[in-house]
Nucleic acid binder design. Sequence first.
DNA 1: TTATTTACGTCAACATAGCTGACATAAATA
DNA 2: TATTTATGTCAGCTATGTTGACGTAAATAA
Lengths: 190, 190
Amino acid sequence: MIHSSGATGKTEDSASSENAPVNDPMTGENGIDFPIIELLFFAYRDFTSDPDQILAQYGFGRAHHRVVHFVNRMPGLTVAELLDVLQITKQSLARVLKQLLDTGHIVQVQGRQDRRQRKLYPTPKGRALSLALAAPQSRRIAKALRDVEQGDRQAIERFLRGMVNPELRAQIDKLPHGNRAKDNGDYRDG
Amino acid sequence: MIHSSGATGKTEDSASSENAPVNDPMTGENGIDFPIIELLFFAYRDFTSDPDQILAQYGFGRAHHRVVHFVNRMPGLTVAELLDVLQITKQSLARVLKQLLDTGHIVQVQGRQDRRQRKLYPTPKGRALSLALAAPQSRRIAKALRDVEQGDRQAIERFLRGMVNPELRAQIDKLPHGNRAKDNGDYRDG
DNA sequence: TTATTTACGTCAACATAGCTGACATAAATA
DNA sequence: TATTTATGTCAGCTATGTTGACGTAAATAA
């Protein structure tokens, strides 16, 4: 049933019944920060659209992207560690991980100390894919940073970090943070 | 089949075959901005986790959140306009919109000028839900902004805006941008 | 040694949220 | 009158998440 504008519509009726349409837009009067809420939505929507197009060519989705990204950033991490970062169940991971293994983007290496562990490494093919996915995102970021002053980068990083649950910020700190000379060898020795 | 560390593992073998595991972590050497790529991922992951918990109590998901949010921010917008903002198909929208109509969070009003249009309005119930979902997100943002200098907010907004596809930035400008006195009446007259 | 716990894999069933394609209807417009 | 537009709807498919149950090998505790 459609509310005809002449039936229960507020405009002519002015009845403030239970299900009357609310006409005034929700604004920041109530102290809510709509500008940043919405900017985050739009920014993230377009930020993820870049890799989506590349992934589609491989028959992959965002789930594959996340897996291949973190395996490349933390080579040698275990399945359990990856689940921790992604915050999904092992059954969810299993599907996409299997595909990435089958297509030769990722390989598993049995842990030496703990042979129950399956340490995940990218192959050269997996590394290339990960870089290809990151490139357009990085270009988008570089463009957006041109709109702000030098030195504002630090504020942006601090803000984004502040948006993360405090107990999960350790995950960020674990990632390699250098543009400096590479220190070869496993991300973390196993 | 698992790569045993003694079989084709690079460590002992040092063979650089096709599918050899890559041991060195992907870093910013190649000019890619990993810190911000990852901060966006983690920030958005936790940013959306707040409303997810509330939505679960209603049997709703993120799709419902987006719909109820934009209907509250732009009361009277048409189905076509909503599809434009959400960038999804009408079949996708249909399911969640039907639920929000059935549960009395949103009502439709036939357009007066163009009677084919179904203009969407929140009910008081829908307005309350939208505010309840926005509240924890706004609190998270306020906390994160405490980590930066006053005046950095503008840089953050500019950066996020710069992340959006230029041709879609008009969508942001359409949203009400005031903390100022409300100007009652439809978001845009129909 | 034996028992338990841990890391991982897998099967089955299910839910959400997106998609394409096809078709219907009412209202606006040419 | 014919066509286009705004919207709704049916059917089926895909991707990505979930829970629950069970199995196996290896590490660890008793």
